[in-house]
Simulated scan of single mutants.
Amino acid sequence: MRRIKLDLGARSYEILIERGLRARLGGAIAKVWSPRRVLLLTDTHIAPLHLQQASASLTAAGFDVTEMIVPFGEGSKSLAELERVYDVMANAHMTRSAGVVALGGGVCGDLAGFAAATYMRGVAFIQVPTSLTAQVDSSVGGKTAINLGSAKNTVGSFYQPDLVLIDPDYLATLSDRYLTEGYAEVLKMATLTDPALCWRMLSGVNRADDIRRVSPELIDFAIHYKASVVAADEHDLGLRQLLNFGHTLGHAIELLAHGALAHGEAVSVGMVQLTRITEARGLTEPGTADQIAERLQAVGLPIDSPLLHDADLLPQILMDKKMRSNQLNLVVLKHIGSPEIVPLKRDEVADFLNLQEA
């Protein structure tokens, strides 16, 4: 078993990575939580595959389990679904001693985490991510949120889990498409670190089966990197902003796609297209975008989208939560392994990104 500690003082917790861990889910959680009422939240995709095993394991470990299934997809990160979670918890007579377990991808983790952060001013929370995107990124670091209309992750909180349990075997039931979208987040973190490590680790990954084969190593690498960043900047005020590489364009086209693009697919496009722009502006070493694109295309990820020319792209970017005090902190690469933040005033964004103002 791989154990990674995210050191946040009194809010520190462990991330456990091991094949077969899902069969011992209840026992692993019982080492952290005393017996209590638990909301086990999952979605319509994961429920038929993994809910019964998880619920039975928790029950066998002494927990009083209430199951809840939300629709699969980004649409569940909504005020309406959040209210439904509160109702289920209240109807199950859950108090501040209760716990919430998120079993699923990033949407389940975000929704369950924000519900845990706000129900009765906060109840205990544990992440059991089942998608590669959640296993390498969203389950760690305490960001929880829902969307507000067309604005992504607008209503949320920093709320750390008590434990993150990662079983790479969950990826066996993930489609190739949703497996490879998670790989975009791994590559993102690799581009922010040592260039030799980046390409040595990723050079043998050329298809979805390669990702499954080396998933424990990919997850371990990504979580170690992210845990170090979060420990240094829990509330996203400095260093942690580097993790937004590719997300400024990525989040915008993801929302404009209305579900047709997965998160990692949008980030893949965002990384490549932003780096092409910064190369043309002399901010990035020539050839960097092609290096990134080659690794993404090897596993079938997109690197371009017609939505980059959508008239609503600029307004969507300017609505993003990364806008601070009328300024966008844009993460760019000088070269692989050397990220930096380029601050742009609101009226500079369109020109810098070669976008047309409405």
Rank of each mutant, 00 (worst) to 15 (best):
E340K: 14
Q241E: 13
E74M: 06
D347H: 07
T42A: 13
G20P: 12
E185S: 11
R2N: 14
L25G: 09
R3D: 01
K31N: 05
G141S: 00
L256A: 10
P168G: 02
E74Q: 15
G73F: 10
G9T: 03
H247C: 14
L51K: 04
T130W: 00
D169S: 15
Q160G: 12
T42G: 12
A112H: 01
L132Y: 10
V123P: 13
L197G: 02
H335C: 14
G270A: 13
A92I: 00
A151I: 09
V230C: 09
L39V: 05
T275I: 13
F125V: 13
S203K: 13
H251L: 04
L171M: 03
P161L: 05
A23K: 07
A10D: 14
L239H: 11
A112M: 02
L187S: 05
Q135K: 10
A28F: 04
T284W: 14
G204Y: 03
L274Y: 12
I211A: 06
D290L: 15
L41V: 14
L202F: 10
Q327I: 09
A80V: 13
D110T: 06
H251G: 05
I166E: 00
P71W: 05
D137T: 07
S57W: 07
F114M: 12
D7Y: 09
S138K: 11
V331L: 07
V214S: 02
P306N: 14
N329L: 00
Q297D: 05
A90T: 09
A252M: 00
L174G: 05
S138R: 07
T133E: 13
P286D: 08
A54W: 01
L296M: 10
G62R: 08
D210S: 09
I292Y: 08
R96E: 00
A184Q: 05
T275Q: 11
Q241F: 07
T154S: 04
Q52M: 07
I317S: 06
K143A: 08
A257T: 06
S131K: 01
L25W: 02
Q273F: 03
V38A: 02
I219W: 01
Y178S: 04
S338M: 02
Q52R: 15
I211Q: 03
S305G: 07
N326R: 14
P168H: 06
S175M: 06
K188R: 11
V85G: 01
L51S: 08
L218I: 06
R121S: 12
G287Q: 07
H235Q: 11
S139C: 02
C198W: 01
V214A: 04
R207P: 05
G75T: 14
R212C: 03
T66Q: 11
G182T: 04
D220S: 05
D310Q: 11
R36S: 02
L261G: 04
Y170K: 04
G73K: 13
L261C: 03
M323I: 11
A190M: 10
